[in-house]
Write a protein that binds this DNA or RNA. Structure first.
Lengths: 315, 315
DNA sequence: CTGAAAGCGCTAACAC
DNA sequence: GTGTTAGCGCTTTCAG
């Protein structure tokens, strides 16, 4: 009826009718049923699904925040899930979420199962892949190249005179993006003529303690390293702590570099050498790309969000 | 039809029929429409809404993780929102989410607008209030007392011989829970006969820099403090950095205490005196309380999750 | 064990 | 500017 038009802010009713409708709705405490709306109209869903690797990651917290701010302002609701870096789990999540007929999806990373891609194709749902840039996205992509991050850091450290580098990673066989950074790092070092000496990729989650023990392992194997690149800032800070506990001076005796641009890194007496990732901006850009697509506005399929190498004082 | 029964794992069909249905569903790539299911059945919604103050908070990242793990394992989907510590914004969010007819809601804090409470009552939706304990919840509550956290820290610091305490807060006029901790701290100090000397509650978000400048402000006003309690660990760490920059020894010249149990606090050469909050456990308990209610199982309305004062070496 | 009928609340398309 | 009709895909209830 006319009520529907009024409540949805449509056109084609008198001011008088509108007021009457609004008043009645208020007095009866009317709450619309979006389930019915989305169901009946098939277009009207304002649900957006977003899947991240880990909800406990500080970086992804900021991405989520960027997405949520942009979407909620436009009247969309966010459904979230975590996949523990597993494409299998992502597929399970996508299968669940797709059944709610979301207006669009935001996925983290570019690695998906064939099943996920097929599900998405069938649903014809707009998809933004974020974080790890791909030039051939399923649909849209917002991010940067992890390989390039690693390569840039490699070149930078070579430029600072480092010659014997090591690498400490985490989440072995789960996180393909960390692996891409390591690969980029390795490649840059090799082409500068000073190849990576040794590396240790732990199975653990990338935290403070993993960095601490990772560096311990690395140095027990090969004592003469002059710089170590870590999976992320938390691990780098763990590495710093280990270096200090062993009486090693940073950066004189050993250089330490991280990745991610964690806020807490400002805690350190010396600023950490790292790569700053514009997390909130990525979230915002992803949400905007999605909404532009939903509104049929033209937008680019691939948005590159540049990262920034912060020289710091530890590398 | 029978198909519905099979796909939902009901009873009343032959094994043969089941196999046929499953096969056809697979070959045609059938994806159920949960919108229609939830709409038609009114009971069947597996949506759970959760509202947190800030998505960028490390602590709430862990709470979210606890909730998500528990719920996704049981087949529920999580809709999230952030309210920037504003009950008004929370009401707007609840209004949106309620219109999706969720199975239940998880809210942070015990401060809600009358509108929110009325909305919840009308929808008869199960609600878990987390984080800040209330003995008279709307429905269910999982958390701890912020007042007690502050009081406990006050007593502890008095016990360590501190006599001239200050407090640095954040999010003035927004965060009632931080205010409760301060109140508890103040009360404990007063009843020990050594009342709070001075306090500064900033408007800013509680981060590293807010702690740094907060301590600066406090000391410029009153130089002879022997301990300062901060809104949270991030701020305490900022305070530590300021103390160091001024050549003050911690804990000899001045004590520093935080709250929250931030992982990165392990970065410090000396362990931070703080209160550790079992974030993941709160999320898990909240999800479980909600699901128990949904299944009609008996459960307690108020679950107290104890915090733990970590003595550390800075207080 | 299987099928037929009705209806959930809303929106779209079309009359009035 | 307003009302009518039909139908979205599922679940529930009730017959076979």
């Amino acid at each position: 009826m006319t009520v529907s038009r009024v409540l949805r802010g449509g056109t084609g009713f008198s001011a008088d009718t509108r007021d009457r409708v609004v008043k009645v709705a208020e007095t009866m405490g009317y709450v619309p049923n979006r389930l019915a709306a989305a169901f009946g109209a098939d277009q009207a869903s304002t649900l957006v699904g977003m899947c991240v690797p880990r909800l406990t990651s500080g970086l992804f917290g900021h991405v989520l925040d960027g997405v949520d701010r942009a979407l909620s302002r436009l009247g969309y609701q966010l459904m979230i899930g975590a996949n523990s870096h597993s494409p299998k789990e992502e597929e399970a999540w996508v299968r669940q979420v797709i059944s709610w007929r979301p207006a669009g999806l935001i996925l983290s990373g570019r690695t998906h199962t064939a099943g996920t891609v097929e599900l998405l194709r069938q649903a014809a749902s707009p998809v933004v892949e974020i974080w790890d840039l791909t030039t051939s996205p399923i649909d849209m992509s917002v991010g940067f190249s992890h390989f390039d991050c690693g390569a840039e850091m490699g070149q930078f450290l070579i430029g600072r005179g480092r010659r014997r580098a090591g690498y400490v990673g985490a989440l072995a066989q789960a996180d393909v993006m960390g692996a891409a950074r390591m690969k980029g790092f390795e490649t840059a070092l090799a082409s500068a003529g000073h190849p990576l000496i040794t590396s240790e990729v732990l199975i653990d989650a990338p935290g403070f303690y993993a960095g601490f023990y990772g560096l311990q392992t690395l140095l027990s194997r090969e004592a003469r390293l002059d710089v170590v690149y870590f999976h992320n800032d938390e691990m780098a800070i763990g590495g710093l702590a280990y270096a200090q506990s062993r009486g090693l001076r940073v950066p004189e005796d050993i250089g330490i570099a991280g990745w991610g641009g964690m806020e807490a890194a400002s805690i350190l007496p010396r600023r950490l050498t790292t790569t700053v990732v514009p997390t909130t901006a990525i979230g915002k850009a992803a949400a905007e790309a999605l909404v532009a697509r939903l509104k049929g506005e033209p937008g680019q399929d691939v948005t590159v969000v540049p990262t920034r190498l912060a020289p710091g004082e530890t590398g």
